[in-house]
Nucleic acid binder design. Structure first.
Length: 286
DNA sequence: ACGCCCGCCTGTAAGC
DNA sequence: TGCTTACAGGCGGGCG
């Protein structure tokens, strides 16, 4: 058994967003404790980060790609990225024991805490200033491409975007500046569903292939959200309450090296692409 | 513009 | 058995 680490991608982050909506909207931040400064590395100091949160109430929970956006009553936004191994935990009481690698703790006036746990410390939190009128909501995230679930578009528009690039399909689907929220795992699942190889050039697709790719992207991600994301046996993804997702049971390619393709029974193979593990069915994906 | 590599990290697992 | 090395990968930056 090979150890696989999965980071939260769009479906996992969306699951957490929905849970946060019911759990922290309307709550006022009483205190913020930063236990690992790397988590708030965009700020000049942990104190600076704290000062911009304490005393403010959380009004909205949004998401852009893999980023969570907690809107505050002063118009600023608490941005959270879970990186590779980040988790948000809702503690009902401050007395609940802290998990190892708990790097930041937000305590609410109404009781309870929101905790940021992240062994690998690739994740981060930062407060973004209120947008100036006409400007982007979060300037730090202005580079992100469209969100596949939030920003619905015609497949013809998608075709225009796709063919304006000349790169391997997997690299492009994982390029956050092209489309935001897809990581290594869902890229493989989407390309399997579309019947397309990871190394097909983005400007080489027929109209039918473009339609299949767009539809697969939306359907796979939406279906994974319905299943509350993917938590493989040794994976780290947990939701706000420590629960797991079950979309991994639907996986067709990712982490299935040596197993039979569920469509044609050929063997799923694993190759390296751009330094990343890539799983595919050589027979179904052309 | 694009592909590829590195560094940042830690836990797990494979290799010797 | 125990130590060392490889691997997992999002993201930003660099290089060819």
């Amino acid at each position: 058994m090979k150890g696989k680490e999965r980071m939260p991608e769009l479906p996992e982050v969306e699951t957490i967003r929905r849970d946060l909506q019911g759990e922290v909207v309307g709550r006022k931040i009483k205190a913020v404790e930063v236990r690992n400064g790397r988590t708030v590395r965009r700020h000049p100091s942990a104190k600076h980060f704290r000062a911009r949160l304490e005393g403010h109430t959380i009004k909205t929970i949004g998401r852009s790609g893999k980023y969570l956006l907690l809107g505050l009553d002063d118009g600023e936004t608490l941005v959270i990225h879970l990186g590779m191994s980040g988790q948000l935990q809702r503690a009902k009481s401050i007395k609940e024991p802290k998990a190892p690698h708990t790097h930041a703790i937000i305590t609410f006036t109404q009781g309870g805490q929101l905790r940021f746990v992240d062994p690998r410390t690739f994740g981060e939190m930062f407060v973004s200033s209120a947008p100036v009128d006409g400007g982007p909501a979060v300037p730090e995230l202005a580079h992100l491409g469209f969100d596949p679930l939030e920003d619905v578009m015609s497949w013809e528009k998608f075709w225009v975007l796709l063919s304006s690039h000349k790169s391997g399909l997997k690299a492009l689907m994982m390029d956050q500046e092209f489309v935001a929220g897809i990581g290594n795992m869902y890229a493989d699942e989407i390309l399997f569903a579309a019947g397309l190889r990871y190394d097909r050039l983005s400007n080489s697709l027929s109209s039918q292939e473009v339609r299949r790719l767009y539809r697969s992207m939306v359907e796979i991600l939406a279906e994974a959200v319905k299943h509350r994301g993917s938590s493989l046996a040794d994976g780290q993804y947990r939701d706000l309450f420590g629960g797991v997702g079950d979309y991994q049971g639907q996986h067709q390619a990712y982490d299935r090296e040596g197993q039979a393709c569920r469509r044609c029974r050929a063997t799923i193979t694993k190759v390296k692409s751009g330094g990343r593990a890539t799983y595919l069915c050589e027979h179904c994906q052309v």
